[in-house]
Amino acid sequence: MSEVDFQTQKHPRLFIPNFLSSHECKELEFIHKCSSTVGYRPNVFSTTLSHLIATNSSHFIIPFIPIRERLKDKLEEFFKCEFELFIEFTGLISWSRGASIGWHSDDNRPYLKQRHFSVVCYLNTYGKDFNGGLFHFQDGEPATIMPAAGDVVMYTADDRNIHSVDEITDGERLTLALWFSRDGSHDEDTKLVSLLSQHLLHKSMASSCLPFPASSNMYWCSQNQASTDHFGFNICWARLHVLGYDIYISQDSSSGFDVSELMVKPVRLVRGSELLDHEFVNILHALQVVQFYCWKGSALQTNMSNIDSKVVKLLDVQREKISGINSLLLNDVNFASRIFCRRPSYLEENGCIYFNWTGIVAAIAAWEDYVLKLSKQIHLQLPYWRMQESLYNVQIDA
Rank of each mutant, 00 (worst) to 15 (best):
D5K: 08
F15R: 04
F30L: 09
S36F: 06
T37R: 12
T37P: 00
F45Y: 15
T47K: 09
T48A: 13
N56C: 06
N56S: 13
R68S: 10
K72I: 09
F83W: 08
I87E: 15
I87L: 14
I87S: 10
T90H: 02
L92C: 09
I93F: 01
S100F: 14
D106W: 01
V119Q: 09
L134S: 08
L134D: 07
F137Q: 04
Q138I: 03
G140Y: 06
E141F: 08
I145G: 09
A149V: 08
N161P: 07
D166G: 04
T169P: 03
G171A: 11
E172D: 11
L176S: 08
F180P: 02
H186K: 15
E188P: 00
D189Y: 01
D189S: 11
V193S: 09
S204N: 12
M205F: 02
C209Q: 10
S216K: 07
N217P: 03
S227T: 12
T228L: 14
L240A: 04
H241Q: 05
L243G: 03
Y245I: 01
I247G: 05
V259S: 11
E261S: 14
V264L: 13
V267M: 06
H278P: 01
N282I: 05
V289F: 04
W295F: 15
M304H: 01
N306A: 11
S309Y: 00
D316E: 15
V317S: 15
R319Q: 13
S327P: 00
V333H: 03
N334W: 00
F340T: 04
E348P: 00
Y354C: 09
V361L: 04
E368Y: 02
E368W: 00
L374D: 02
